[in-house]
Write a protein that binds this DNA or RNA. Sequence first.
DNA 1: CCCGTACCGATGCGCTTGCATCGGAACTGA
DNA 2: TCAGTTCCGATGCAAGCGCATCGGTACGGG
Lengths: 195, 195
Amino acid sequence: MPRQVDHASRRRLIAEAVCHLADERGLEGVTLRDVAARAQVSMGAVQRCFRTKEEMLVFALGHISERIMERVRARLVRSPAQSAGTALGHAATEISLLREEQRAEARVWLAFVAQATVSKVLATTLKANYAALQEAFTHLISEAARGADRATPLDPQREARTLLALADGLTAHVLIGHLTSQEAHDVLHSHLAAL
Amino acid sequence: MPRQVDHASRRRLIAEAVCHLADERGLEGVTLRDVAARAQVSMGAVQRCFRTKEEMLVFALGHISERIMERVRARLVRSPAQSAGTALGHAATEISLLREEQRAEARVWLAFVAQATVSKVLATTLKANYAALQEAFTHLISEAARGADRATPLDPQREARTLLALADGLTAHVLIGHLTSQEAHDVLHSHLAAL
DNA sequence: CCCGTACCGATGCGCTTGCATCGGAACTGA
DNA sequence: TCAGTTCCGATGCAAGCGCATCGGTACGGG
């Protein structure tokens, strides 16, 4: 058996390169050659890992989805003691990708969302992610609502959808410079407080 | 003076073609040749109207911005009798581009938003539009809030930002198929009711 | 009537793209 | 040590891109 290469890790390496390039120049500016150069591998290696460019992009989307999800999970685990309400706040903040160091991920994410409107495979991947997030949020909200008694009974699923859409909208507005991340934080927490 | 052509209307014609193509294939799939073909003019004509492709795209963005703004304005004028609250609802609905016949505009808009994260000129144009919208919403909200007395005093500007971000997020989620436009409507109106 | 000017369609150029190909390098097992 | 197998880097190719160019066309003024 000759030399074996760890395909999985190489694919991840390449996915990282895709994200960096998508951050800098947009998804359209991602070419196989540039990806190879950025990942410090040859074009042939890239083509061995992914049969087509689209396959590469889909994998990259899955990669960063996983990273984001992982961060949310980590955040929830890190602060388990508090109430479901604060956990919700943390999760929402993570999702919004407002922190400076997440700006790159946010740009890549937005690029993929835009691309998904014309690419069926990307849309499928994205929908799965959103569905998972929405479910998680729904649970958090209904749990948080159990304690607090409210004048009007609230629909956890609808509130989850609201929160998810709001987070995404805020992310986009920060990215194009319409809002500062400060303002976005303010809006987000105000909304959460109203819940 | 030899034959003169109406440059302004031709530019609008081309902008329409750009929007159609961006709707079908994404902003990346917009090429000068295809635009020319779709607009039923020659490539030379396109190049006469716009010196570069970017100039064309920027004009197209301005064109559809204007159209959307115009629709919002028309909607507000059409139903002036009601309260500021219902006017707000109408405006928000228009902005969200949820109706089927606005799906194309929504796709184009999202494509431009994504592109704006890497293009300074596009970002500037977009920011101007969002600023105008936010201001309009702020006024509507503060006006609507004047009548209703509330437990917690609300910040009109913050609520305007929230509404704008929520509308955009919902639009995106409908486009990628995570929500149906029905669900988005539900979310939006529920949020408005909470105000 | 025809000349001059404003317009435009077609064509060419240089470049980049995604993808296919292949000779040789690298490493394992005997 | 060497044969065998797996991998990969370089190169080629056809297509498509944005943009520049230019000769022909059509119209309005003298």
